[in-house]
Design a protein around this nucleic acid. Structure first.
Length: 380
DNA sequence: AAGAAGCAGCTACGGTCGCT
DNA sequence: AGCGACCGTAGCTGCTTCTT
């Protein structure tokens, strides 16, 4: 059924400026629908604009309808690209979702193989460029989203003195290659979280978050605002994380599967594993919940390292945690320069489950991390 | 024809309850 | 506590209908 006839009032139309803004949002969200909060914000903003003065306020529902219709019309205009793999896709514009779908599929595939990622293909040393295929991610200048790096093709020194690398994105061809600032837009790859790793995601953390519409989505930087811990069951982790995306400041509650944690948080898992091992050695079955509490409390001062109830997880002050994460990431440019093949050995690679260049390297790194973790715990 | 709005069907998620 | 089943709700999809 259609819209009921308007009783004398002229038909509602969005103004060109409003359409332009919503178009921009649509593009920003890769043809996705904004969150309810954003819809409300847009409705309020439009209603408050001078052009709308004296007119009926715009309802969020109307904004939502517009996004629905526009998205549908976009799809109707673009014939199913999915059925034609050779179709060109670019990190920007209408083919955005295809690019994202590839990237997400790639990451999803990696997620599914997290436990068995040691297929050793990278240890052959045959192609040092390809051997970094699952280790780094790069931020596309076209859309600001992060993509897995398939290869570093070459490098150069930009005018500013910053090194740049030419990047081939995973799942994309040469036409999508980009020159990317190494210091700012290349980093060690974020790690998909397994169900048991939700405890390593804490409020304040920088994460890579999967912002998606239905069939299109991209990975963007986001910060965890809050973590709602829930009991795990057969479906795995059911925790929810309130995140704020850095690029558009939109907030969203996401499940763990959309979260990729930064490798800098590996030390937390090691603390967790150590705690579990200790509990096992003591022949005491330690419920994960308690271990979780211990992990969280290690980020605080020793005086505060007493068992908390689970809900206290939400109250943990993670400022220090955040500082550790960002500090490690921002103040160690050498790590981000790592894409240059010769530098990869120096890169701290602690995600032993998902990313390994070789057994020796990873074991050294793990030891190093443990020392760091212990040091941090001591410093606590 | 274009744009706004409504609808039915479907799916994912969240909560609860009962069983072990 | 862990697990499975069930149910209600919200959101999405793919349209259709109506107005201009």
């Amino acid at each position: 059924m259609g819209r009921p006839p308007s009783a004398g009032a002229p038909a509602f139309r969005f103004l060109p400026s409003e359409v332009a803004e919503m178009e921009a949002r649509l593009l920003q969200l890769n043809n996705g629908i904004p969150t309810r909060a954003v819809l409300q914000t847009l409705a309020d903003k439009f209603s408050a604009s001078p052009e709308r003065a004296g007119k009926v306020a715009i309802q969020p529902k109307q904004v939502w309808n517009w996004f629905q219709n526009r998205r549908y019309s976009h799809r109707a205009k673009t014939p199913r690209a999915a059925s034609s793999p050779p179709a060109k896709m670019t990190p920007s514009g209408a083919d955005h979702h295809q690019h994202a779908a590839n990237a997400s599929a790639f990451r999803a595939a990696q997620l599914s193989s997290v436990a068995a990622a040691h297929h050793g293909s990278s240890s052959t040393g045959k192609n040092p460029v390809e051997s970094v295929s699952v280790e780094f991610e790069a931020k596309s200048a076209r859309d600001g989203a992060w993509y897995d790096v398939a290869a570093f093709l070459s490098h150069r020194l930009f005018e500013s003195g910053d090194p740049e690398v030419r990047v081939r994105f995973s799942g994309f061809g040469a036409e999508e290659d980009e020159w990317i600032n190494v210091r700012k837009c290349v980093r060690q790859r974020s790690l998909p979280c397994e169900a048991t790793e939700c405890v390593a995601v804490l409020p304040g953390d920088l994460i890579l978050c999967f912002q998606e519409g239905k069939d299109q989505a991209l990975y963007y930087d986001a910060h965890v605002l809050d973590a709602q811990r829930r009991r795990h069951d057969v479906r795995g982790c059911r925790c929810r994380f309130l995140v704020r995306y850095d690029h558009d400041s939109s907030e969203e509650i996401v499940p763990l599967r959309k979260v990729c944690r930064r490798p800098e948080t590996d030390y937390r898992l090691q603390i967790l594993h150590a705690a579990r091992a200790a509990a096992t050695n003591a022949d005491v079955h330690t419920p994960p919940k308690e271990v979780k509490v211990e992990l969280a409390s290690t980020d605080k001062s020793p005086a505060e390292q007493k068992p908390h109830k689970q809900h206290k997880m939400m109250d943990v002050n993670t400022d220090e945690v955040t500082m550790v994460s960002t500090l490690e990431q921002d103040e160690t440019p050498g790590k981000t320069v790592a894409p240059v093949p010769s530098a990869t050995a120096e890169t701290r690679n602690s995600s032993s489950d998902t990313v390994m260049k070789g057994a020796e390297a990873s074991s050294v790194v793990e030891d190093d991390d443990e020392v760091q973790a212990v040091d941090k715990m001591k410093e606590g």
